[in-house]
Simulated scan of single mutants.
Amino acid sequence: MRNTTKITAAVLATGALTLGLTACGSDKGDTKAKASDPLVVAATPVPHAEILKYVKDHLAKKAGLNLEVKEFTDYVTPNTATEDGSVDANYFQTQPYLEDFNEKKGTHLKSVATVHLEPLGLYSEKAKKTAELKKGATIALPNDADNESRALRFLAASGVITLKKGSESDATPQDVAKNPKNVQFKEVEAAQTPRSLQDVDAAVINGNYAIGAGLKPAKDALALESTENNAYNNVLAVTEGNEDDPRVKKLAKLLTSPEVKKFIEDKYAGSVLPSF
């Protein structure tokens, strides 16, 4: 049974961003929730909300968890909503993105479970192989610092560019040392990278947005990010102080259960990989 509430960034962004984040985060931790209270979790639609819906429909009731899923379509509002108490937790982001967000926005978010990896992919409607990218080709990149740096490292690993030594952890387009094809970069919001394919020669797209746009990463990507030694696992996160909420602990256990592992493997066929 689908009981998911879709909320766009426009609904909550203004209120969430204008609240005093530090104060709100602290206030929320002062109120202990009852085990029977709904656990409201923010998630982007694919695959996060789909995985949560599986938990809700097949595992939550038996575990005594009243789970409510709210969908968001951006990478900012789920964190600000978690910080200010509009939701109890979120499941949409990687650990490096969470850490960068905390540093830049002054939030106090903590990961409580590592669930899956969505490999970045390079996609194109004009080339079938990376080698077929023409000279001067334009490649769209996610415009947030963490995903852009990750995308540039991915392009370097794929042989498209070479980065300056020492710049890998926080690379920007200015850190490109060698660019044999003289590719140009177009920075766009991560959620918009699939749409940008019509206007550019190729795009680096996050796995969840690729799947949401009907792309099959394991099949359609010109190149796919390796899972080996990859720090970009997706996590379940809460505001600091809420890590021991029994409802959160139940959800963390369910999200890393054998049932969820099988669901991810069967549904996404390699495009989303369990991290546990």
Rank of each mutant, 00 (worst) to 15 (best):
T227Q: 13
A190K: 07
D74I: 01
T4G: 03
E148A: 07
A213V: 04
E187I: 00
I161Y: 07
L39H: 02
L98H: 01
G20K: 09
G106C: 04
P38A: 14
K110E: 15
A49I: 03
F101M: 07
M1V: 08
T239F: 03
K70R: 15
L120K: 01
D37E: 12
A202T: 08
E187C: 00
K126T: 15
Q93Y: 01
L17A: 15
E71R: 04
L109D: 12
A33N: 06
T82V: 07
P173A: 06
E148D: 09
T239E: 15
K28I: 13
A16G: 05
L117P: 00
N182M: 10
D199E: 14
M1L: 09
K134H: 12
P173E: 11
E148V: 00
E240G: 04
L273I: 15
G207A: 14
V11F: 09
V200R: 03
S257K: 04
E225K: 01
M1Y: 02
N90H: 12
G64T: 10
A269P: 00
G214K: 05
Q184M: 14
V176H: 06
A269D: 12
V41F: 02
Q198W: 00
V46Y: 04
I161G: 09
N234R: 06
G121R: 02
E243Y: 02
K28Q: 15
S226K: 10
Y123A: 12
E83T: 08
N79I: 02
H116V: 10
